[in-house]
Design a protein around this nucleic acid. Structure first.
Length: 310
DNA sequence: AGATTCGGCTT
DNA sequence: AAGCCGAATCT
């Protein structure tokens, strides 16, 4: 299951399965920073430095030592758990440029429905509701006082950073329905009052910030002597995220209080995660563990150590 | 049952 | 016109 036919000498282009997807650029070689084998970028980003909104999960999934590819990255949308393989695709998704397939919870048929094309998504940030582009700008410019035109003064002030504001136009008429979606849980609220109640009852910390998940299915816990600095880089490059509680990515190895502690801490330090979210995570994972083990026993154990063939 | 959409009342 | 939310409808 390793290499498909005849691709040995070659590069580490990520192999895409079926559908038309953006192609991800992956850095190869551990030493060869300078020679990325590929720079296939079929879509040009509107803003090259696009960053994920808070609440998204970045999974860095290292490949085995035998692979010429360092790691794969996956991006998960909070709430839906929808998986993306490139930033570009995330960006396009957020900007609502096109109809996209949204995941359904139903296990049987998971990708079914096209999102209404008029749907608009924005992200709360600094008390404002921004389009992805604006969010990006705001961050880059580090302007706290930016006042975008899409600002929605009425309700934005109470929307914590990272929350997604979704507007779904109705089929007929001119109205649209609005939802406030919490990063992390994906919980939806239909109105500001609802949102407020929730926030109040959960002592919500509006300053919830980035968190990057790192997966080390290929890392060995036994011998791994020291962590590389690369993790920090990663963190900077892809700040973000919280995991989706109801629909965790399939393959992440969670490292909580266990032996993997050190893997989390450096990252966690930099973020302010609402306690309740942590709690929820813990709960979810504990509960979820069993389910996972059931369904995908191997993933948990790892494709790691000895088993790794070359 | 949960998610989505509509309708109608309120602000 | 925008917001809210009960309820019908859809999956």
């Amino acid at each position: 299951m390793r290499s498909p036919a005849g691709n040995q000498n070659s590069n580490s282009l990520v192999r895409m399965s079926g559908q038309p997807q953006p192609i991800e650029v992956v850095y190869s070689g551990k030493q060869h920073d300078e020679s990325p084998d590929m720079r296939v970028v079929p879509f040009r980003p509107k803003s090259p430095e696009f960053e994920l909104p808070d609440g998204w999960v970045v999974e860095v999934r290292p490949r085995g030592p035998t692979s010429s590819v360092l790691a794969d990255k996956y991006y998960y949308e909070p709430g839906t758990g929808r998986k993306f393989r490139s930033l570009i695709s995330v960006q396009r998704y957020l900007s609502g440029e096109e109809d996209i397939v949204v995941p359904r919870k139903s296990p049987s048929n998971s990708l079914v429905r096209y999102q209404h094309s008029g749907t608009v998504r924005r992200v709360a940030y600094g008390g404002k509701v921004l389009t992805p582009d604006e969010l990006d700008e705001a961050r880059q410019a580090k302007l706290d006082d930016i006042v975008p035109e899409t600002l929605q003064p009425k309700s934005s002030s109470i929307i914590p950073d990272g929350w997604i504001v979704e507007e779904i136009p109705r089929k007929c008429g001119t109205r649209s329905d609005r939802y406030f979606i919490e990063p992390g849980t994906g919980q939806k609220f239909r109105s500001v009052p609802d949102l407020q109640k929730y926030l109040a009852s959960h002592k919500y910390n509006s300053k919830c910030k980035a968190l990057t998940l790192r997966n080390h299915s290929t890392a060995r816990r036994s011998s791994a002597p020291r962590k590389k600095k690369t993790s920090l880089k990663m963190f900077k490059t892809f700040q973000t995220s919280i995991i989706d509680l109801t629909n965790p990515p399939e393959k992440i190895n969670w490292v909580f209080s266990g032996d993997g502690r050190d893997n989390w801490s450096p990252l966690v330090e930099e973020c302010m995660l609402p306690d309740y979210v942590k709690e929820q995570w813990e709960e979810t994972f504990l509960l979820g563990m069993n389910g996972w083990k059931h369904r995908v026993p191997q993933l948990m154990m790892g494709e790691s150590n000895g088993a790794t063939n070359s």
